[in-house]
Design a protein around this nucleic acid. Structure first.
Lengths: 217, 217
DNA sequence: CGCCGCTGTAAGGTTGGCGCAAGCTGGGCG
DNA sequence: CGCCCAGCTTGCGCCAACCTTACAGCGGCG
């Protein structure tokens, strides 16, 4: 899914960035408040991770401004252990959750998934489609009790379609969900991954609506 | 509004109960998982407050079961401050929000109001015309539970007519809606698509106003 | 260093929707 | 009653959208 990491460019920022990308997320990095504001205005993120220790210290203002504009994108704030007052201020400003630095990356990504799913209005995490058993929280798929292994990108695409289940997702919407700004995709990558998913999951799971996009019905 | 408080019968439970009732809510109290399940099956609550510290510890199972059954009632879970893993498990199970005990009663009631409102305000994107079920947001149409597949152009034309429901749309207005400037249409394309739509959807759905245009009454 | 799996690009094959055209239907008016 | 023209319907060739396979680059891991 498409994420925004608001963090000054440090060693830590890049290790978070890499970990999230390895999980198949498309992550944009915003090193300061202004970049973050612009990015949130342009792209539709599934979740925003907001570090309150920005150089100009105005991370909270970014959040408040977006909330005032009616934006409900899930925001998880990251604070240092001793900045309890920051945490409370963050929740007051409209944050959905917080993690304490240094945080466990698995915990962070679990929270990201949970909040993104809830924002989509489809909180069920385990369900069936055709002959497939799907666990969105665990990012796993089974048929006949045996797991079908998906790569990070394959799952990312499938998850995006699941999040819009019953609705058609245009190819550009999928590209936005899968690729960050600086990935600069240029080709038929989406079609390729749809093809690969159909080989693994069965041709009927993802339908093509020619000229419109794809849908999991 | 009608609320359900799932909480073992303690001092705390009753003070929450009293506070919510003083705000004018109709609150049912369920002291254990079984009572809660029965209550949710029978009544239509605006919001459910679910304590995870139940004696039999199965609060999460109640939630999961309701979500599996397709119930979207907003659920706010209450956890102790140190039970972070509970919180994530709760969100994964389909909770909409959580509060940390001991919580401020005003905060709780504010969240109840917010979630109840959001659940109510689901945009009514789905409606019926004659024997058709139509979802404009999803760009899909059904008759007798089976989907009628429309092509991109067919849907574009139908959607334009739906957007002007009850008014007559002239042929030129429809051409403007369907074709970009540089497409330079020159033929009877609109009539062709009206014909195809009538074949798929039924002749009575789109009426012709001779010399004026078309209308979905 | 070599192997392997994942990723995105490229190239060729396939297909379904698109819109034109041509003939038909029927409402309305003299 | 009969003509005329707006609208209806069907067939069809074309082409963009889509599918599939192959491949090269890259990074992780032993």
């Amino acid at each position: 899914m498409r994420l925004l990491l608001v963090e000054d460019t440090s060693e830590l920022a890049h290790s978070i960035l890499r970990a999230l990308r390895e999980e198949g997320h498309a992550v944009d990095l915003a090193p300061d408040a202004q970049t973050a504001t612009e990015a949130m205005a342009v792209a539709d993120y599934a979740c925003v991770i907001l570090d309150l220790g920005l150089p100009d210290g105005s991370g909270l203002e970014v959040l408040k401004a977006r909330r005032r504009a009616g934006d409900r994108t899930p925001v998880i704030i990251a604070t240092a252990r001793d900045q309890i007052s920051d945490r409370i201020a963050g929740l007051d400003a409209g944050a959905d959750d917080y993690v304490v630095k240094p945080f466990d990356l698995h915990e962070l990504s679990a929270r990201i998934r949970a909040h993104a799913r809830r924002a989509q209005g489809l909180p069920e995490t385990r369900f069936r489609i055709a002959d497939l058993e799907i666990d969105r929280a665990a990012a796993r798929v089974w048929r006949d009790r045996t797991e079908i292994r998906l790569t990070a990108r394959e799952w990312a695409l499938f998850d995006a379609l699941l999040g819009a289940r019953g609705r058609v997702l245009g190819k550009t919407a999928l590209e936005d969900a899968l690729f960050a700004f600086d990935d600069a995709i240029e080709g038929n990558a989406v079609e390729v991954y749809v093809s690969r998913l159909r080989q693994k999951l069965g041709a009927q799971v993802i339908e093509t609506r020619r000229g419109l996009g794809y849908i999991v019905p």
